[in-house]
C-alpha cells in the first residue's frame, strides 16, 4: 500500500519508541533510519520487526525514522502499526 501522508506515532520517553513515516516517490525504495539506545543488543530483532511489518502492509516506497529508547517488541509493533495506519489514512479509532 502506498502511504498518503507523513505520520508519526510514539514518544521520546524511556521504554518507548517514536516512528516517523514519510511517503517517497514510486520506485525509490525504502529508506530506513533506526536509532536505538539498545542497538547493540537488540538491533537485529528491531530491524526484523520493522521490515516484517512494512512487508505486511506492502509498503515499498517509504522513508521511516525510528528513535528507540528500549521499547519492548509489543510496544514497537503497536507504535509502528499506528504510524503506518495513520500514513495510510486508515487509522480508525486512533487519534491523529
Amino acid at each position: 500500500m502506498k502511504p498518503q501522508t507523513s505520520s508519526q506515532a510514539g514518544t521520546f520517553e524511556s521504554s518507548d519508541v517514536i516512528f516517523l513515516i514519510e511517503p517517497l516517490p514510486e520506485k525509490s525504495g525504502r529508506k530506513i533510519e533506526l536509532f536505538s539506545t539498545v542497538l547493540h543488543q537488540y538491533g537485529e530483532s528491531f530491524k526484523k520487526t520493522v521490515v516484517e511489518m512494512l512487508d505486511q502492509y506492502e509498503m515499498t516506497d517509504v522513508h521511516l525514522i525510528a528513535r528507540d529508547k528500549g521499547a519492548l517488541e509489543p510496544t514497537i509493533k503497536a507504535r509502528l502499526e499506528t504510524a503506518i495506519k495513520r500514513s495510510l489514512g486508515i487509522h480508525e479509532g486512533t487519534v491523529i
Binding site: 507523513s6 508519526q8 514518544t11 521520546f12 520517553e13 524511556s14 517514536i18 516517523l20
Partner: peptide, 17 residues
C-alpha cells in the same frame, strides 16, 4: 521523571505535522 521527554514529544509532534 519522564517530564522532559513529555515536553519535547508534545512540541516535536506538533511541529512535525
Amino acid at each position: 521523571t519522564t517530564a522532559f521527554a513529555l515536553v519535547v514529544t508534545y512540541l516535536t509532534e506538533k511541529l512535525l505535522k
